[in-house]
């Protein structure tokens, strides 16, 4: 399975791993990290919105969260997804 990563495990960051999903399977997101319960909904919303804006319908995302805000999370999801689909062309 093809995968791509973006981000780090440093403070105020997150490590996002994007993996290919079969067509029609939709977006599947798993999360772990500090205070994850508190921010789960917000992280999910940002990640899904970012993928939808990119036109990505089927992907598996794993987010290792370490205090990233929405700006950073969005950037990391976009970078991982772009790397997965083959650069930013």
């Amino acid at each position: 399975m093809k995968t791509a990563q973006a981000g780090t495990l440093e403070s105020m960051d997150c490590l996002v791993t994007a993996s290919e999903a079969e067509k029609g399977k939709g977006i599947f997101i798993t999360m772990e990290g500090s205070n994850i319960a508190r921010f789960r909904d917000s992280i999910l919303k940002t990640a899904k919105t970012t993928l939808q804006e990119m036109g990505i319908k089927d992907v598996i995302l794993s987010i290792q969260y370490n205090g990233a805000n929405d700006i950073v999370l969005k950037a990391r999801v976009e970078a991982a997804a772009k790397a997965l689909i083959g650069g930013d062309n």
């Binding site: 973006a6 700006i71 969005k74 950037a75 990391r76 772009k82 650069g87 930013d88």
Partner: peptide, 15 residues
Amino acid sequence: KDAARILVREVLKNI
């Protein structure tokens, strides 16, 4: 390089 460029763009737009 690609990840940093995206991050810098988002930081510039929002901070």
